[in-house]
Design a protein around this nucleic acid. Structure first.
Lengths: 71, 71
DNA sequence: TTTTCATGTTTGGTTTATATAACATAATGT
DNA sequence: ACATTATGTTATATAAACCAAACATGAAAA
């Protein structure tokens, strides 16, 4: 299963789901689905999200059972 | 557009497309399409590929016009 | 030379990502 | 009280990812 920090980082920058959606060229519903973990976005979108949230893909998304989970 | 180093790293480790496909649970055709840049894999698959190729997603995939291109 | 193996490529099918639109709710501002 | 805004959520539709199977080719190996 896929985990992510999109909601956390979006909040940190004070973006709404719509704001972020516009920046990365998807609808707010797509952002909502990603935050809920309901699907695994394309890497193209993941790269855009990482850029918008000033981080990198590996910090933003990880597979359950990998590094970030070991804490 | 999306660029990647899958073929380069796969070769470095001496994996065939089939080998890599098995490791990340997709068919060899899917690996071939990704290497050709014909589509943008899911981030779940991208994370598995990065792991199999002992790198991270941001080293393996990047958007044209981003950092890696500036050289 | 014949077989095997890695890769290229195409076609048809299923699944999933993503869009668009609608309706609901809670919070905030007027 | 009313309007607006952010978010949750659901339905239907389309595009794209991915599978499975087939056939082709060139290289290496027997």
């Amino acid at each position: 299963m896929l985990n992510n920090r999109v909601r956390e980082l979006r909040a940190r920058y004070g973006f709404t789901q719509s704001d972020l959606g516009k920046q990365v060229e998807v609808t707010r519903q797509t952002i909502a689905f990603i935050e809920k973990g309901e699907f695994s976005p394309s890497i193209t979108l993941a790269l855009k999200l990482a850029k918008a949230l000033q981080t990198n893909v590996d910090e933003l998304f990880w597979l359950e059972g990998d590094e970030k989970d070991e804490k």
